[in-house]
Write a protein that binds this DNA or RNA. Structure first.
Length: 860
RNA sequence: GCCGGUGUGGCGGAAUGGUAGACGCAGGGGAUUCAAAAUCCCCCGUUGGCAACAACGUGUGGGUUCGAGUCCCUCCACCGGCACCA
């Protein structure tokens, strides 16, 4: 018996592809181009199964497109800046640069045995000066084009470590290392004017036909277009010279129910009142905790009565109290709101807490002066009776009421209707070392001066230390010192670096000309762009993808991309995670750091430490282990399976096939040892069957026609499956075809034809095995570039089909009919069916539904 | 808290509004073997029944429809995102 050995065949074919330069992206005049891109990885140093899945999917597409005659661009690179390298520097003393490039080398070595069809000649890392220098050039062009500006913005401030923290480093409102209460503090930072594009980024979502609807919806909600009323309350006294409070509301229809005004603790008026120690203390209290919207929204709603009052715009005898409230955000609208407790749950709670009036403006019936026990929030389409309103009595809530209210206010000189977006400008400044330096200089005379492009790249200095928290660039003895590009005087560099999202916002464009001495080359970009298929995690649905869409537009405005590339990703696919069971036992290993292993009293175990028997799970010493349901593979939970080990045991084809076969690609897939074994067994079976068939004489057999028909159906189904990302369904069809091939009594000629097609259909998933079989059956050249098989349409239809017969929607019988039998003939046949006759019992059916080719339903 | 998604046998899952459970795993039975491994064949939602078959069945509760896993509403659970994790 011939045994299948992945170990022997996989390196052989990888070398063959490499020698033939099979995956080199080459522009072509006579082939259509196809650009397939998977979100590039952060070089953590360790390839995990999630990577394998992501890149296996991209590889299926890339190889399929190659076989269907495209000039394919399938590049790979590294999203290499970021916090982990600095954390490693702090904990182990390794330099971020050495750490990062070391990790890249390791991961690249782990990629090799997977047999992925990358064009490695285009590889780059975002931490290469050749890359980030071009990014600095883009920054300067964006700055010149007015797409970048400076303003104050809040950051998480650790008052003990005296450093800015990422949201991830704030745990329950405390700094992850110091444990100190985090404060929100303002810093002057650089911003991209993404909000200038709010309307366009929203409108253009409509054209993204091959994006998941959910991603478009999430982006749409994130951009958050709203229609509302902007107006001002007059302050009764004029504290600190303020005579009015500007308010934006999306619910002007509740204006008659206003019972208080609340301003953000960061509102100029609130800050102006800080001479009062009580106000200062309250504001300081509000500034505690992290900056995330989640933290702010979940915090207890608190208010401080300033004692100030404002006048209701429609009744100057009506004074409303002014509160400072922790739930009002300076970043939204005007940093001030009015509260209508009757029709908003949060305002209702606030009013109850502080004893404020609750004034209904509309009700479900005409009841007057009711006492509400909770906020009354009518459904969008509910018709309500207004007791206090703008347009009289009966009216729908929702947009009609809001527009009516805006119209009434405008007519009476109270503010105006405005359209606002929720999307905020993108702050790109980071107070960190391991990122792209922002290429500006602070000159004592000229102020903020952009660097000369001739001085790019502004390289990160290597001689830095991480012994104290904070940005090493700030305390570097010489790196900051420079000459002002404008006047030549001694000046200092900006020490902030760029958000790593900047790096990943244009790498797809750089891949089209990765060695160019300009950010892009228009001619190459015009040829390869857009990305025809982009693949990555759903966790990037909003930020990364939105930033990239903005960046492509900004790059077009500054002449770095053609107009056709302003929506850089034609099609998007978001894949699920790879998960694994978690094994936990009692026992404390002690916290290593606040985020690491050993939190609480649970000890986790790697899958290969576990022995399954009698339906339980045990360690080798017999200790029982709790099996916790599957979750995303993570180091802290130890529920990881190392691709290296799987490849060593079964080969890359098994790993690839399994991660593609077991779940739909957009859903999570659970890695199971038994599943991997079953896959290995199946691939061995395919190999064995192919070997046996290769040894057959060319002849005919009784099953020839059936086998060839099945073959054409499989070609059709697998092709459709690949094109629609139905990899798991396509693989199920390949199982079926293999089994048909084994059972068939077709002759050698037909079987050889079928097995060659089987190899071709499998080749995107299991390329090495496919090449081996192809060679075994005398296929010409590499299967990777052999033309994709085409199904004969005539082979896809059957002459007769089985129609199920339902009685009152329940299946009761079936009839076999010619595929083109007319409807009335089917009706006659159905009524003649034994089960139908019995059920009708002589009566006529109430209704007879015939869906040709599908079903018959007899309604009695 | 807000936005988005998911929920189907013991398990992963399949199913243009039209036969629910394809395909795979696990399990059971058999063939082969001195025996085992490997391989091959059959069975396999739940309940009742020897069986034919019947009833029930796609997270919960309602609705639309001749017909709902699929569409609409409610609730529950879990997952992703929430602007400095990448």
């Amino acid at each position: 018996m011939i045994l299948y050995s992945a170990k022997d065949i996989e390196p052989k074919w990888q070398a063959a592809w490499s020698d033939a330069r099979t995956f080199l992206a080459v522009r072509s005049d006579d082939k259509p181009k196809y650009y397939v891109l998977e979100m590039f990885p952060y070089p953590s140093g360790k390839l995990h199964m999630g990577h394998v899945r992501n890149y296996a999917m991209g590889d299926v597409i890339a190889r399929y497109k190659l076989a269907t005659g495209h000039a394919v661009l399938h590049p790979m690179g590294w999203d290499a800046f970021g916090m982990p390298a600095e954390n490693a520097a702090m904990t182990t003393g390794v330099h971020p640069k050495d750490y990062t490039y070391g990790n890249i080398a390791q991961m690249k070595a782990q990629f090799a045995p997977l047999g992925l069809s990358f064009d490695w000649t285009r590889e780059f890392a975002t931490c290469d000066p050749e890359y980030y220098g071009q990014q600095q050039a883009l920054f300067l062009d964006f700055l010149k084009a007015g797409l970048i500006y400076r303003k104050k913005a809040v950051v998480n401030w650790d008052p003990v470590d005296m450093t800015v923290l990422a949201n991830e480093q704030v745990i329950d409102g405390k700094g992850w290392r110091s444990g100190a209460d985090v404060e929100r503090r303002e810093l002057v930072q650089w911003f991209f004017k993404i909000s200038d594009y709010s309307g366009e980024l929203l409108a253009a979502l409509d054209g993204l036909d091959n994006w998941p609807a959910k991603v478009k919806l999430m982006q749409s909600n994130w951009i958050g277009k709203s229609r509302g009323l902007q107006f001002a309350f007059s302050l009764v006294d004029e504290p600190q010279g303020h005579d009015r409070i500007e308010v934006y509301t999306t619910r002007p229809d509740t204006l008659m129910g206003a019972s208080f005004v609340a301003i953000s603790p960061d509102h100029p008026l609130a800050k102006g009142l800080e001479d009062d120690p009580a106000v200062a203390a309250f504001n300081a209290e509000c500034r505690k905790g992290g900056t995330t919207e989640e933290a702010l929204e979940k915090a207890e709603k608190r208010g401080f009565d300033t004692g100030l009052t404002v006048l209701h715009p429609f009744d100057t005898a009506w004074e409303l109290p002014v509160y400072i409230a922790n739930f009002v955000l300076m970043d939204y609208g005007t940093g001030a709101i009015f509260g209508c407790p009757a029709h908003d749950e949060r305002d209702f709670d606030f009013a109850t807490k502080y004893g404020l009036p609750i004034i209904p403006t509309f009700l479900s019936d005409a009841e007057t002066d009711p006492v509400l026990t909770e906020a009354y929030v009518p459904a969008k389409t509910e018709v309500v009776a207004y007791v206090k309103g703008f347009a009289g009595d009966q009216m729908q809530t929702g947009n009609a009421a809001i527009e009516a209210a805006i119209g009434f206010c405008e007519a009476n000189g109270v503010g105006g209707g405005v359209t606002k977006f929720r999307l905020r400008d993108w702050g790109l400044s980071r107070q960190r070392y391991w990122g792209c330096p922002i290429p500006v200089v602070h000159c004592p005379d000229c102020g903020v001066v952009p660097e000369d492009k001739a001085n790019l790249p502004i390289e990160l200095p290597y001689d830095v230390t991480f012994d104290v928290p904070g940005n090493p660039l700030d305390r570097h003895p010489t790196w900051r010192d420079c000459a002002c590009p404008k006047c030549g005087a001694a000046a200092q560099r900006e020490t902030d670096t760029m958000d790593t999202f900047v790096d990943s916002s244009w790498y797809y464009a750089r891949f089209t000309a990765p060695r160019a001495t300009t950010p892009t080359v228009l001619d190459d970009a015009a040829y390869w762009m857009n990305v025809d298929q982009y693949i990555g995690g759903i966790e990037h649905a909003i930020l990364h993808l939105l930033y990239s869409r903005f960046f492509a537009r900004a790059m077009h405005v500054t002449g770095h991309l053609p107009e056709m590339a302003i929506e850089p990703f034609n099609a998007l696919f978001t894949q699920g995670m790879v998960t694994h069971e978690i094994y936990a036992s009692e026992g404390r290993t002690g916290p290593i750091d606040p985020r690491g292993e050993g939190i609480g009293f649970t000890k986790y175990h790697f899958p290969d430490e576990i022995i399954r028997r009698d339906g339980g799970a045990y360690l080798s010493d017999g200790t029982a282990v709790e099996v916790i349901s599957s979750a995303k593979m993570s180091k802290s939970k130890k529920n990881v399976v190392d691709p290296d080990a799987i490849i060593a045991q079964y080969g890359a084809d098994t790993a690839r096939w399994f991660v593609l076969s077991d779940s739909p690609p957009e859903r999570d897939v659970e890695w199971t040892a038994s599943g991997a074994e079953a896959t290995a067994r199946h691939l061995a079976r395919v190999y064995r069957v192919a070997s046996e068939i290769a040894a057959m004489d060319d002849g005919t057999g009784a099953g020839d026609a059936d086998l060839i028909r099945t073959m054409h159906k499989t070609i059709h189904e697998v092709t459709l499956g690949i094109e629609s990302f139905g990899f798991n369904a396509a693989i199920a069809k390949l199982y079926g075809f293999t089994s048909a091939l084994m059972k068939s009594d077709a002759g050698g000629a037909a079987k050889k034809q079928a097995v060659r097609v089987l190899a071709q259909l499998m080749s995107p998933m299991t390329p090495h095995l496919a090449e081996e079989i192809w060679a075994m059956l005398g296929g010409t050249g590499l299967i990777a570039v052999a033309p994709w098989p085409v199904a004969d349409p005539a082979m896809l239809t059957e002459d007769t089909i089985t129609l199920p017969i339902q009685i009152n929607g329940k299946r009761r019988s079936e009839i076999a009919v010619p595929v083109d039998m007319p409807k009335d003939a089917i009706e006659k046949l159905a009524l003649a069916d034994e089960a139908v006759i019995k059920a009708l019992n002589g009566a006529a059916p109430k209704k007879l539904i015939v869906v040709p080719g599908r079903i018959v339903n007899v309604v009695i």
